[in-house]
Design a protein around this nucleic acid. Structure first.
Length: 430
RNA sequence: GUGAGUAUAGCUCAACUGGUCAGAGCGCCAGGUUGUGGCCCUGGAGGUUGCGGGUUCGAGUCCCGCUACUCACCCCA
């Protein structure tokens, strides 16, 4: 028989094994608390949606839709897509349940995997996780300010200080098209000097040229018309108010007229938080206002703002800075048994201890006492309960403190209470 | 999709210009302690050097192809 191929995780995905998962749990629970403080409730949407939602919501011409989506037909022939981002899904749910008729401002957050079929590299995976929030129902700049304040609070709560916030206004359906044309005319004059990529961008996305990494593109962009001269009154006012809120809150930011978002639905506010500790994919979070999205997906005109933060990217920074994730869970008590009879008593005792919600481990491999003790130590247990023939005869067990090595005999009838007491003493210290 | 780099035990890595080079540390297992962890000592298991060809008396070491991984472009979280 031929050897069976060893399967492995698919490219661009990552397994999070137990020696990592506790870090994720730590980050998630901390983040959830912050959302709670800002009064954002969790929303969970399906991992896949009808392809149309993303195609229309994000925009057919965007990179995400045109080449990065995991799209497949289900058995009924419907085209489905693994979500590449959450905003469209959240808006879909909002429109579907007519939340505008129930709640004036819908504030929700999510922590969820996303899928994009790109070439993996540092800080870029095909299945990655985003922490994000959306505030739907208001076009006020206060909401933009709160969203920015919120994401910065999350970042800072993990001790990250080395970042910069860039904000911009990308206009709206009234003023952006005009600016786009003016920009196109400007770049056309330098067409021959533009990079190959930018020549293509000129067609459908001249704004992106402003964000090019190409040396010559950048030089040309320096003298390009600036969007602020072309914003309509509404957009300009919105931007001014947002800045004044940020100033008052004390948030430091950089005005970045070249900041462009890759999703079509953004209007007015666009922002990005970048970290020099990240490598080429240096955006730890991004977001903005999307007043056009609802209509794109067939809903009424509903304004919204949100952000998304790359969890893996934040983890990269935390690891790099030796962030203290706390420790993994461990069994407070380890029951070591010698012989079948002792194991029977041990199994029963383990259950009683666990019923009291005290983490407990018992040897399941029938190894030597020495191995069991070694295991107890490796697991980080505070106490070992030793049960053997000798102890059974006297109806006792040995309780060994693995921190100081002191051990004593305890009656089997009193062991549960003894351990409970010790555990109660220990709790506040952890 | 394009480009570059890397590919040796479970993990991190050694092996001069091709000639005992298949190793170390960590981890794992066992013994030193007939029923007791952490430190220490001793021993053991574990690799057809990613896969397939080629050059050569001889290749982990050179060449070609494939695959995977990594980084960068693109784009984005």
């Amino acid at each position: 028989m031929a050897d069976k191929k060893i399967l492995k995780n698919v490219r661009g995905t990552k397994d999070i094994l137990p020696d990592e998962s506790f870090k994720w749990q730590h980050v998630e629970s901390k983040v959830r608390k912050i959302f709670e403080v800002y009064n954002y409730k969790e929303i969970r949407t399906p991992i896949f949606e009808e392809t149309d939602l993303f195609a229309r919501g994000i925009g057919e011409l965007t990179d995400i839709v045109s080449k990065e989506m995991y799209t497949f037909l289900d058995k009924g022939g419907t085209s489905l897509t693994l979500k590449p981002e959450m905003t469209a899904s959240v808006m879909r749910a909002y429109v579907q349940y007519e939340i505008n008729k129930q709640i004036p401002l819908f504030k929700v957050y999510y922590i969820s995997p996303m899928f994009r079929q790109e070439r993996p590299q540092a800080g870029r995976l095909r299945q990655f996780h985003q922490i994000g929030a959306e505030a739907i129902g208001s076009s006020n700049p206060e909401v933009d300010a709160e969203i920015i304040d919120l994401v910065l609070n999350i970042i800072e709560s993990f001790g990250i200080k080395n970042y910069s916030l860039k904000v911009n206004s990308v206009g709206c359906q009234i003023c952006r098209p005009k600016y786009k044309e003016i920009l196109k005319d400007y770049f056309k004059k330098f067409y021959d000097q533009l990079s190959e990529d930018s020549k293509k961008r000129l067609e459908h996305n001249p704004l992106r040229i402003l964000d090019s990494k190409d040396e010559i593109d950048r030089k040309i962009s320096e003298n390009a018309p600036v969007i602020y001269d072309y914003l309509c009154k509404d957009c300009a006012e919105h931007f001014e108010k947002l800045k004044s809120y940020l100033d008052e809150i004390g948030i430091k930011y950089e005005i970045e007229p070249h900041l462009v978002r890759g999703l079509d639905y953004y209007t007015k506010t666009a922002f990005e938080i970048i970290s020099p500790e990240l490598g080429s994919q240096d955006a730890i979070a991004g977001g903005g206002r999307y007043d056009l999205l609802s209509k794109e997906i067939g809903g009424p005109e509903i304004p919204g703002v949100g952000f998304a933060l790359g969890m893996e990217r934040m983890m990269m920074i935390l690891e790099k800075n030796n962030y203290d994730f706390g420790k993994s869970s461990y069994p407070f008590v380890f029951i070591a048994c010698i012989g079948f009879e002792a194991k029977r008593i041990g199994m029963s005792l383990a259950r009683e201890i666990r019923k009291k919600m005290i983490p407990c481990e018992i040897d399941l491999l029938n190894r030597s006492l020495k191995s069991q003790m070694k295991e107890a130590d490796r697991q980080g247990s505070k106490y070992a309960i030793i049960l053997g023939e000798d102890e059974l005869k006297e109806s006792i067990c040995i309780v060994r403190n693995l921190i100081d090595g002191h051990q004593e005999k305890i009656k089997l009838s009193e062991i549960l209470e003894f351990i409970s007491l010790k555990y109660a003493e220990e709790i506040p210290k952890d």
